[in-house]
Design a protein around this nucleic acid. Structure first.
Lengths: 155, 155
DNA sequence: ATAAAACCTCAACTAAACTTGAGGTCAATA
DNA sequence: TATTGACCTCAAGTTTAGTTGAGGTTTTAT
């Protein structure tokens, strides 16, 4: 049987190998480590050695980043997981559900903005004063929830 | 008639007034000025004086920022416009059409990501190796155009 | 006329997410 | 064995979008 092959403990990866396979720079891996996003064992000579599961972890980090989640938040989310085991499907499910909610919010916000932009063009809105989109009381804060309209700065 | 009233040249605004009306900090107005996004005249005592049209300009800047356009790009777009006149409907139309295109791209990208996230959850994707979403050849670069899928880092 | 509020400039600081470089060590190869 | 490439640490630099503060001047209100 292929027992001997199957049982070879999967070799650990050097930082360069991880960089090559994951597509992130070595310096970024160092950086992620300082931020607590990933961890490493060290070789006798103090060089970083990673279990292959780090690749999945990095993939998850990248996905989360694409959704717009800041690294600090990603770190918090990953921190809960023991770093010595693979991310399980259940972990991923939990994480991605959260991030998806975030993403949906962001999408909704941008979509609303686009629609406002569209009607604003239609109505010559920025000539202002009588723009039907007027809604000065919506805040501009990035975190605002409701639909939010172009405000006209009192002009 | 209200001639005397109507003909009063609209008073220029101080930086504090602009800040109050536009909702951006005085320091931000200074900053925008250094970046060439807005301009000011000076009073005898060297204090900034703005035409009321600056408010519209700032409104446009804020809208553009919300769409995710970096200030440098906003500057370039506004630079074409003489800063001593109001943004006309036609200016606005041109600008917002461009920005809308950008916005649509961003929305499309995020939407694709969300959908991938969804199917990824459905298929237990992050357990990887057989994920139907696999599409390693798409780059991750922010500027990528095509639909772009979760790549699996060679795991 | 005088005090307070608003304004001025310039330099330095902040935060996020990295990158670059200096000075030195480790490991794979000829 | 020796050299080269990969690695190490730590400090400093980069970009974006501002904010903060020091030290000084102008405007406004009393």
């Amino acid at each position: 049987m292929e027992k001997s092959k199957a049982d070879l403990p999967p070799r650990e990866l050097s930082v360069g190998e991880v960089a090559a396979r994951s597509g992130v720079a070595v310096s970024t891996l160092h950086f992620y480590e300082t931020k607590g996003l990933i961890k490493s064992m060290r070789s006798r000579g103090n060089q970083r050695r990673y279990p292959r599961s780090v690749l999945r972890r990095i993939a998850v980090i990248k996905i989360a980043q694409r959704t717009g989640i800041p690294l600090a938040d990603i770190q918090k989310a990953l921190y809960a997981l023991p770093d010595d085991r693979q991310l399980l499907a259940s972990d991923w499910e939990r994480l991605s559900e959260n991030w998806k909610a975030d993403l949906n919010e962001r999408i909704a916000k941008l979509t609303a903005l686009r629609d406002q932009l569209t009607s604003c063009i239609g109505c010559g809105c920025l000539s202002m004063r009588d723009c039907p989109l007027r809604n000065p009381h919506d805040t501009l804060s990035e975190k605002g929830t409701g639909a939010y309209l172009i405000e006209h700065a009192g002009e």
